[in-house]
Design a protein around this nucleic acid. Structure first.
Lengths: 309, 309
DNA sequence: GATGCTTACGATACCCGTAAAGATA
DNA sequence: TATCTTTACGGGTATCGTAAGCATC
């Protein structure tokens, strides 16, 4: 058993068992790839792949069981390299943040600016993704830090920390009747066609829950992934917009009015997540501390260590 | 980076950095061992060992950080082999139970007998150890199942399940004044020199806690690891014995009398533990089911999976 | 016929063990 | 001096890539 075999196995799983493609991805020959898999099966004494004739079409029982272990081994190999780099004393390196549009656009600019000043030699990458993908990216070690409002709590393999709380705001075109409703109520809002976030994004659950609790079934005419699209269509008069307060604050003149929705929809919490299985460079903790100074390195390390004493 | 290097690194840590000894343990040459460690350090670009002149005397910062990851990688390699064997269809294999004297002597014989009948081809090994060692053996993958009353709850890396509950009993030589005390009280017991388990064994904590709660400071004249030693010295008249009820039940004539201690000391729970990081053969689950049928394979797997999806 | 897996084979690189040298206690 | 690590070197083995053979779609 060697690491090349494990890399090939993992890549084969990811690429639907097309060994030719795997060879390309790993910059090696497909004959070598094929032999490696035969060798691994021979050493373990079990077939890992289901074959139709000569084609590989799936995993056998043992093959399926091995996937998580192989993934973790390769992740751990990466962790060793990361530890070495961290202690190499060099200040450079890469940090990948997986986050949603809303966070990247409204919450993170301040943090990113501060981080670039603090750690100028670190290559900072922002990876915009849907909430469900963020957990996956962290789990696979393809991102170091995840920041999102939903979808991070489910996995045991992630450690999550509260970042900040926020609420939703209502926006309308200038002169809209809702401007004169004081105080604003859910019933009043639900009387108009609504423009807001798609399911699974930026607290949409909270919005649905609030209407449902009030026995209302509003008409959502547009479900977007980001506030810019929502604003655009509210400006067009498609309906009344509901968006994150951080996004509403930067809503410039442009004929739009922001109505407070503090009391209409519940408060949302945006979370910071890291994988328990990924070793983080020191500057990753710096980044998190810039998000919230109470999230210091010692606390993150403590609360995210489930493995190894 | 390859597995031989990782094996050598782990063994070096375990054997106080004596590479000659490591070579012996891994059945290879010192020169190869030495070169492997140099190669690994070169590849990672960091010194792993603290050297005094040419001698290795400890781990550097990065070396220390890498230990748990290396341990886990090698454990995972073992897990792959175990999975393969499990699916090889063969019924044979090994199962190592780490447990204390008390469990091995009084609780497990019934289970072991049933298991041998159910899985005759499995080589069953009982490893008697102190409670603190049991957690370590499980964590290192040197035992599959741990059974003990204390010391298993601390580690995040272990999943624990209740096995059974029991209490302590008091034993005295026939004709002892305590025989006539009805009902038996802590005060009455504490008036005599006591013979019981050592700290950290077989519910000793519970005994101490019970006396402390009653404001008593009894005189422990002997602290043993097992019931046989306790019985022996109670017979000699050294003092009054306190031992596990399972052990008391088998106390034969021999001039000893068992007094119920049900209400004197709290109830103890004996636990079954498995490592979250170790893949278990099917028959390991059979063993646990024989301990308690409600601890079926699905439940154990579910509640011990914190890693991997 | 295009795609994809397997096998054969030669060049290369890596790993191992013996032996000798250097350093430490 | 005895113990331990490092370096040097030769033999063996494993890995890799090219190329050809052969199934599958």
């Amino acid at each position: 058993m060697n690491f090349q075999q494990l890399r090939i196995f993992r890549e084969a799983v990811r690429r639907n068992f097309n060994l030719t493609e795997v060879a390309g991805a790993l910059f090696t020959s497909q004959s070598g790839v094929s032999k490696h898999m035969k060798d691994l099966e021979a050493e373990l004494g079990v077939e890992l792949f289901v074959r139709r004739g000569k084609r590989l079409v799936g995993l056998t029982g043992p093959g399926r069981e091995m996937v998580p272990y192989v993934d973790r081994m390769l992740l751990d190999a990466q962790n060793l390299r990361t530890i070495a780099t961290e202690y190499g004393g060099r200040e450079d390196g890469a940090l990948t943040i997986a986050t949603t549009h809303t966070q990247a656009r409204y919450a993170l600019p301040r943090v990113v600016a501060a981080f670039r000043a603090a750690c100028p030699r670190v290559h900072l990458g922002l990876y915009e993704a849907a909430p469900e993908q963020i957990a996956e990216l962290l789990h696979e070690g393809r991102a170091d830090i995840g920041i999102a409002t939903e979808g991070l709590g489910d996995r045991e393999s992630l450690a999550v920390f509260p970042f900040y709380e926020w609420h939703h705001a209502v926006i309308v075109p200038a002169g809209h009747p809702l401007e004169r409703v004081q105080p604003l109520t859910l019933e009043a809002v639900a009387a108009y066609p609504l423009v807001t976030y798609r399911e699974g994004f930026t607290g949409r659950e909270r919005i649905d829950a609030a209407f449902a609790a009030a026995g209302l079934a509003p008409d959502f005419v547009l479900s977007a992934m980001d506030a810019d699209v929502i604003r655009t269509y509210v400006e067009l008069g498609l309906g009344v917009g509901i968006l994150a307060s951080m996004a509403a604050e930067t809503t410039t003149g442009a004929g739009l009015r922001v109505l407070s929705g503090d009391n209409l929809f519940g408060r949302n919490t945006t979370w910071i997540a890291v994988s328990r299985d990924t070793y983080l460079r020191g500057y990753a903790y710096r980044f998190i501390e810039l998000c919230d100074p109470s999230l210091d390195e010692a606390r993150i390390r403590r609360e995210s260590s489930s493995q190894s004493d």
